[in-house]
Design a binder for these strands. Structure first.
Lengths: 203, 203, 203, 203
DNA sequence: GATGAATGAGACTTCATTCAT
DNA sequence: CATGAATGAAGTCTCATTCAT
């Protein structure tokens, strides 16, 4: 065990984190293109040169931010999912984790669902990666559920995309609304709808 | 008969259309921010100055394009919807119209579902307008269907958003994929899922 | 005598005059550089093409305007001066004519005293021409007055410039003021000062 | 002692000065509108971006230049004036200071007397400020002189403007002439004329 | 003669990136 | 390591001028 990580590393990590925190705020507020490196620097209370010491360029900041945020999201989701064994329960808790995390980090929602999409073709693959990882997870659970005869068979490929899209839309309009009502209140209704769509929660 | 009475008007309209056509291609290919007015000009086989004679600025081109495209979409949808009387059939044909139109105009899909979202806060209201008009239409039909006891009661607000989101996601990933399979093939599966989600198409 | 000038000529002259009238307003209001040919065209209720039919370019309009205006000024001055024989009286009435003409055509004053000066080096010679013609006239009268022993000898070169400059400044600040008092009221005081400066109107 | 403590400040100030020096040359040579930021940049041996780091825009450069130059002028005039007590002597030395300063900085004269006037309405107030400060000073001394019975009473308002205008004209035509004779040689004659105009230097 | 759509050179300005201090 | 002055490529927009109709 290493009780004391070298100070330099620590400072550097801290600085990097501060930059990414600032970048999250700035990107979520102005969008990728409108955000300037100067904005990020002053929000992070550092200098432009400082930014370029830690990151090779503006796009690298954005990618690192997507990466860090995706990691955070997946960790949150992973926690919940790990506690379940039933595939439907896994899916259920995954969605809930997403809703809760986005619900308490609105800039994160804007970053992933709004800004990342229009940041430019250069980021499409990265974003698609994150999204498809989640969609793949959904599909996997669906397949499992079908195999276990928990639900009648259905096109799990399309279903996983549709579920993701439905959630996406609900969260996005919440993220862009002026004074949205809490996501938590909306989610149960969405949940019922989604479960019904795969033959559960029969009326 | 004199087909060429409004000569100057005609020329101007033609040029405007050509500019918007070019803008659609360029915006869909590079995104709003990366697209340059020069790109649009040369694609439209005109000059930068020519563009600025017809539009006050780059954002105005984008807005005009969204407007024209929304008009086209709504017209297509309206045609189909008008031929139906049953609310569920209306919804059904509306979705199909969207899928078909997007399916044969991939850049239109990219424009609405990808680029418009990240083009910047200045366009959020316009985009929200178009989207919410469609969502409102869905909700209205759902409410009607519930009133007519065609389906059991459900949260039509969330459902309309979820349906739109699901469709959105399916079309978006099709629009961004390298070699997507035709949308037409995917749609029936999505349709089944959606209908089931509101208690129809009982397994 | 020609009782009926050809109509075409007439219309052309009229159009030219209307353009110059418009140009006077526009140049006086916005300055030479800020004024656009479109401004002039719409003020003259014609089209850009119409302007370019009558004048080879923007600078030509400005020069023609200076020319026409100088002609008007000199005519007014000439009238009054011709009625006098005494050199001092000639100068006196020349100044009065200038003051009256500028006083009732504020844009003319702005054109000559403000805008023409900053319109660019290309117009310096033209402007200098007009001004030096007036200064030369003053000098000539001064020389005459000295020769006739009407006044004690003095440097007539500097005096003519100084007189012109003093008048210039008074008229300019009147032309630029927001709510100036009529020039007519100010002139007598200036007149007394100027006459005293060459040894007349002894206290 | 450490002469180089404020290193960065120093460099920035130096660069700003160099930019203003270059701007003076360029504006005086081509006029405000014709001068391009590129001209100023290359004259200052820096880059366009460098200019915009120090000044928010072209107009700000012009204003800063007017400001700096007015400060220089007033300082020179202030020095001389402070050494005198008699109001007429003060006026006299103020005019002389102006003539000498302009006489040895021809671009300064062009800047103030020619270009600033036609630079556009946006600068009128600034220029009027500088001029009216000088005119007010003249009037104040005149009033004082009248109060002390050094001169017979006269309209000091008009006189201060007229004096300023006379000087203005003499300097301006010197500044615009191709090969002018030194201002110093002309000034005594102007001085005699001006003094006589308020009843001094009786013939 | 007149019109106004079209052109294109060139202006100002922004900002990601570099680098001397 | 950090700073911020400096760079320069690139973008949006303007407008004097031309020319087909």
């Amino acid at each position: 065990m290493e009780p004391s990580v070298p100070v330099r590393q620590d400072r550097a990590v801290t600085r990097q984190e501060r930059i990414l925190d600032a970048a999250l705020d700035v990107f979520a507020a102005h969008g990728y293109q409108q955000a300037t490196v100067d904005d990020i620097a002053s929000t992070a209370r550092t200098s432009k040169g400082g930014i370029y010491f830690h990151f090779p360029g503006k796009d690298a900041i954005f990618l690192a931010l997507l990466d860090r945020s995706a990691g955070l999201l997946l960790a949150r989701v992973g926690e919940r999912v790990g506690a379940e064994t039933d595939p439907i329960a896994k899916v259920d808790s995954a969605l809930l984790a997403l809703v809760r995390t986005f619900g308490s980090h609105r800039s994160l929602a804007r970053l992933f669902l709004v800004e990342a999409r229009g940041a430019g073709p250069q980021f499409h693959s990265c974003l698609a990666d994150v999204q498809s990882r989640f969609v793949a997870f959904l599909k996997q659970q669906f397949d499992e559920a079908v195999n276990q005869n928990l639900v009648p068979p259905f096109d799990t490929e399309v279903a996983s995309q549709a579920w993701f899209g439905a959630l996406n839309q609900v969260v996005t309009s919440w993220a862009l609304a002026d004074r949205p009502r809490p996501l938590d209140e909306t989610y149960p209704h969405l949940r019922a709808l989604l479960l019904r769509s795969i033959g559960l929660l029969a009326p």
